[in-house]
């Protein structure tokens, strides 16, 4: 508990430094949000408040920008980011079945995390590996030429 608390304070300090760097820069909000998401993994109210106060803009404006761009999230992300490509090539090769299989096994919808925060399920546009369609990425790992039955095996690899 103590360790986590310390770590949280370090993150807040880190974000303060970022804000300081950007305080007089025009259009600072988006780069600061990116860095904040790097630091915290997501942008909860406390973090958005810190940014709003630091840059002297309203929390409503910060929240407006955060919810506008899909790159930002206000919910914590899982340890493993599953991205199922729904680009044209993957789609015609049955990516939807693969996505459904992930939903079924993990019991989450797209954009959600599993209860243990292990996995986040996302759908994405073309990852540029159409030759391997349909493609799924888990963090840095790429899996190609998949069928729905492969999903279980992929998840097994991240059990621990």
């Amino acid at each position: 508990m103590n360790k986590e608390c310390c770590c949280e304070n370090e993150k807040i300090e880190k974000l303060n430094k970022v804000i300081e760097e950007y305080i007089n820069v025009e259009g600072a909000l988006i780069p600061v949000l990116h860095e904040a998401q790097e630091i915290f993994g997501y942008l909860p109210m406390a973090v958005q408040k810190q940014i709003a106060d630091g840059l002297n803009i309203s929390l409503a404006e910060v929240y407006g920008v955060v919810t506008f761009y899909s790159a930002f999230t206000i919910y914590p992300k899982g340890q493993y980011q599953i991205n199922v490509c729904l680009g044209t090539a993957c789609y015609v090769k049955g990516a939807n079945d693969i996505l459904d299989q992930f939903k079924k096994i993990l019991k989450v919808e797209v954009g959600q995390n599993t209860e243990d925060h292990k996995f986040s399920l996302n759908a994405c546009r073309c990852v540029g590996a159409c030759g391997l369609a349909p493609v799924v990425t888990v963090n840095e790992d790429v899996y190609g030429k998949l069928v729905a039955d492969d999903v279980k095996g992929i998840l097994e690899k991240y059990k621990d």
């Binding site: 803009i57 309203s58 409503a60 404006e61 929240y63 407006g64 919810t67 506008f68």
Partner: peptide, 15 residues
Amino acid sequence: CKNIQTVGVIDATER
């Protein structure tokens, strides 16, 4: 709310 009154409790959200 934002520009005239500088209260700023509402804004455009989502897309």
